[in-house]
Design a protein around this nucleic acid. Structure first.
Length: 574
RNA sequence: CGGGGCGUGGCGCAGUCUGGUAGCGCGCCUGCCUUGGGAGCAGGAAGUCGGAGGUUCGAAUCCUCUCGCCCCGACCA
């Protein structure tokens, strides 16, 4: 491609609308342009990068045995009613009516459509397993789209769905996908971590998020500094700090704590450390009140609470609701005598003789004990891990870091196949629902994440495998016939060798060409200029480290071929 | 949805408080000149000041409504 003919509107200044690095650079580099909030056009360089990621995904999905399809974006409401998600999905699902008044939606994801496809066409265990994927534009009406390609409303996603006849097969498919994802992100040249997103109840871990570690990430990730353990903060667990307290339960008593409301205030007032206090919080779980007991210095992890209770939504009650449910204001709540269901964190269940509110203004209770003074209805790990906690696997130190979720794999089980009656006949002629899995990759987000991770003051720095071009060839003195002809010759020769090259043939001064070349992050810069005119030498500069080497044309070509090939060589086994 | 901010040539901004001929830098076009890190000179095109209504002799500026965009938040007793 010739720069002079390419739609590549680079900007000298940061656009006012962009805050994060990838957003600024994508706009400045002429990769994308915004149409409206969270909706972008991909210009040639942006699309080239997207395509690179897509091709890696296609190759690895194909190698893992998945087949590509393309599913409809417009979907009928009835299908979503069947799965129950027409009601559950919320305002993120963009709904509309067509000219006949039929209710429809834009697909934010495709479980319903794919399950329908399977139930209509797969009837026998002999057709299983089946693994299908597509690369498609999705629409989710996000509350707050932001950061350019990082969280758009419209975005490009690879989503895959698998159908297996039995659990063992489904687990094997899951493992295959896990490995394919490792391979994909490794090949994209970005540093990532596979993170447990769902452990626990069933035993194994059946959901992983693939996170690009970057300071601008929207998710918090807990990683162990010694072993491979990594988990989303929503799911992360910690090793219990110490053995249960074996003190003998003491008789409970009430104590006046005038004006002392927070854990800190009460602890200070009574000279008792926060870890001997238990705070009581009133939540509405799908509208039903529950009281949640948490150690004073711990915090509730709402997702864990939601899962423990098996509800869709938990919200904190407001002051008025608290008063009417407990008869006491926030700050003086406790489990003793409460009429609403009690949820107790696993840590609190082990505690003896702790302090709680008395459900009376300016009063707290000492030496409260579970079982004796109150009986919890629910018990489980509902606390948020913090940085002082220890790894549940190896006891190493945990760290909390930010990550960008670029992939997510999930074992669905029979949730959708049952809802939609998607069944097959097994060896014994028995009707059984498909065991499903789903596997997503945010293609456009992966590009943003790669930039967040790889950039410097001058612009983007693309890893070779996803760079829009492999080489940018600068014709620095285009008015000089000798260099111009050589630039043309190199341009064609590189192309003949299968190298993706962008020729900057513009009538611009060298400085502008250098700036643009740096900005768009093409890994190798080949320069033909005065040095060629005088000494017959070309210069090669690598974007990563700025190293410059000079060589005669033949040697330069060989060098470039070697650089490109070695950068593309798969770092993993084949 | 709550809070904050911003809409002025393609881009980045000043002008708004205190109403009186719409400005600057970059970019764009023409010519000259220049060519190794976003050159210089000369000339030029380009703006319904987001939109509607109002106040006024007069509105980018004041008032009302409205649309769009950006940021923060949407949990800790």
């Amino acid at each position: 491609m010739r720069f002079s003919q390419l739609l590549l509107p680079t900007l000298k200044e940061d656009p006012a609308e962009a805050e994060t690095i990838s957003h600024k650079l994508l706009l400045r580099g002429g990769f994308i342009r915004k149409l409206t909030a969270g909706v972008y056009s991909y210009l040639p360089l942006g699309l080239a990068t997207i395509r690179k990621v897509e091709q890696i995904v296609r190759a690895e999905m194909s190698r893992a045995g998945a087949q590509e399809v393309l599913l409809p974006m417009v979907q009928p409401a009835d299908l979503w009613r069947e799965s129950g998600r027409w009601e559950k999905y919320g305002p993120e699902l963009l709904r509309f009516k067509d000219r006949h008044g039929r209710e429809s939606c834009l697909g934010p994801t495709h479980e319903e459509v794919i399950t329908d496809l399977a139930r209509m066409n797969i009837h026998s265990y002999r057709s299983l397993p089946l693994n299908l994927y597509q690369i498609q534009t999705k629409f989710r009406d996000e509350i707050r789209p932001r950061f350019g390609l990082m969280r758009g409303r419209e975005f490009i996603m690879k989503d895959g769905y698998s159908f297996d006849a039995d659990e063992a097969g489904a687990d094997a498919t899951y493992r295959k996908m896990y490995e394919a994802y490792q391979q994909i992100f490794t090949r994209c040249g970005i540093a990532f971590r596979a993170v447990e997103a769902d452990t626990g109840a069933i035993g194994g871990s059946f959901s992983h998020e693939f996170m690009v570690l970057a300071a601008t990430g929207e998710d918090l990730v807990v990683i162990c500094q010694h072993c491979e353990y990594a988990a989303n903060l929503e799911r992360a667990t910690a090793r219990p700090e110490k053995a249960a307290n074996h003190d003998t339960p003491q008789p409970s008593s009430q104590v006046a704590t005038p004006g002392q409301k927070t854990v800190q205030e009460v602890g200070k007032f009574l000279h008792i450390p926060a870890e001997f206090l238990v705070k009581t919080m009133i939540y509405l779980a799908d509208g039903q009140p529950v009281a949640v007991l948490m150690r004073g210095d711990h915090e509730v992890q709402p997702v864990k609470l939601r899962n423990l209770l098996g509800v869709l939504e938990v919200v904190l009650a407001d002051d008025q609701e608290i008063a009417s449910l407990t008869g006491a204001p926030a700050g003086y709540l406790g489990p003793v005598g409460l009429k609403i269901p009690l949820v107790i964190d696993a840590v609190v269940a082990q505690m003896v003789n702790f302090v709680t509110g008395a459900n009376e203004v300016d009063q707290h209770l000492l030496n409260v004990n579970p079982g004796r003074d109150f009986t919890p209805q629910h018990q489980g790990d509902i606390r948020m891990v913090n940085e002082d906690d220890l790894c549940p696997h190896c006891g190493g130190k945990l760290a909390i870091t930010r990550g960008i979720e670029v992939g997510h794999i999930f074992k669905l089980g029979t949730e959708y196949s049952q809802a939609l009656s998607a069944t097959f006949l097994d060896q014994h002629g028995q009707k059984r629902p498909f065991i499903m899995g789903c596997y997503g990759i945010g293609i456009s987000r992966t590009v943003a994440a790669a930039i967040e991770q790889n950039h410097d003051r001058d612009g983007m720095i693309f890893p070779m495998p996803i760079a829009p071009f492999q080489v940018i060839l600068l014709s620095l003195t285009p008015k000089d016939p000798k260099t111009r002809v050589e630039a043309e010759r190199l341009y064609h020769q590189l192309q003949e060798h299968g190298i993706e090259v962008l020729l900057d043939d513009r009538d611009e001064r060298p400085g502008s060409k250098f700036k643009d070349a740096d900005l768009v992050g093409i890994p190798i810069r080949l320069m033909v200029g005065k040095r060629f005119k005088n000494e017959g030498l070309l210069e090669i500069r690598t974007r990563t480290d700025g190293q410059v080497s000079a060589a005669a044309p033949v040697a330069a070509l060989a060098m470039i071929r070697e650089m490109v090939e070695s950068a593309l060589r798969s770092p993993l086994k084949n």
